[in-house]
Design a binder for these strands. Sequence first.
DNA 1: CAATAAAGTATCGACTCAATACTTTTTATC
DNA 2: GATAAAAAGTATTGAGTCGATACTTTATTG
Lengths: 187, 187
Amino acid sequence: MSEQEANDALERLCNLLRMEARAFGLRFGLQPVQMEALKYLTQCNRYSDTPQAVGEYLGLTKGTVSQSLKALEQKGLLTKKPDKQDKRVIHLTPTLKGNNLTKKATQTKGLGRALAITNSITDTELTQMLRSVLRGLQQVNGRKAFGACHTCRFNEQHPEGSVCGLTHEPLSAQDVQLICREHQYPQ
Amino acid sequence: MSEQEANDALERLCNLLRMEARAFGLRFGLQPVQMEALKYLTQCNRYSDTPQAVGEYLGLTKGTVSQSLKALEQKGLLTKKPDKQDKRVIHLTPTLKGNNLTKKATQTKGLGRALAITNSITDTELTQMLRSVLRGLQQVNGRKAFGACHTCRFNEQHPEGSVCGLTHEPLSAQDVQLICREHQYPQ
DNA sequence: CAATAAAGTATCGACTCAATACTTTTTATC
DNA sequence: GATAAAAAGTATTGAGTCGATACTTTATTG
């Protein structure tokens, strides 16, 4: 019964966030999906900045994603670069304009201010709780995690620094903060 | 900085839920917005079951909402009834089919199962935390709360039962559980 | 080397959504 | 009480989303 209440609160929260996101995007001629794709691209690592990964992250087909990315490119918010090794693959990089826009969007949404006036919760508590739910939900629904490398089971801590256990490439301090499409939680 | 992390987790959670909702709706030929509108109508009270209220709840214009409701009516998921007093107003009631569908949708989303395997959180804790965030966010962004009567500042507890301080109508035990568009939190 | 798979694009049709214009009914205002 | 303004809803239009399908190019597998 209380599970119902948690569900309702979460849904309402999602609606509110989407509402604000839509209102913000409208002022810049951007659709909600376009904002979300751009936001993802500012946060993901070099293995995860492809149209395919964007589609997996947002749960959309590659055809759909292709169009939204075309729109973002035409608006000068991202650039496309073909992969050196695999000529089928394209890497997407947000432009400076794109990066600035996503920063402003996050601030505008007001979650920071909302948490500031809600002194009964710390943002750390909220983050922990949301991540637990997130992990459970991904497990139940069989979705990919899309977490950052520093929480990944493939991330190996060597004395010289971090290394990805999948690609065996070294990871910088910035790298391990980025979202990876191959991410898996430990255990 | 941790505010950023909370924001990201919440956004990811919203994406996942929307992903599941889309997949579910697709199997029944319903769009995400249509599902959300129908869900709202199964939960709102008799002052809040109008196209206008649906628009306010979902943050959409009345024109947009009008079309989605038309689609829901044609699919036999809701019925329209004109108001007795105000002939401009139309009341929307989900059919039995509509009610059953929303029930199934909520279960399918898997939040319940996700919470079950996440034994570090109780659903009561999650609900409380989400509601606090919700309240803060609504305050910051100046949105309507759309809460249930039993948490409303206009709800008066008399010895004979609850009464709405705005309409002065008596409220049953079921009534005070429903969502109202005039809802305001105390203080 | 041929068959198959994978990454991406293009096109189509149903739908969303905001904007605008419109109708009907209610409420103010004089 | 007549007239103006506001409010609730519908209809239409145009840009965009989205899944499905078909297609091209490049990799991988046998």
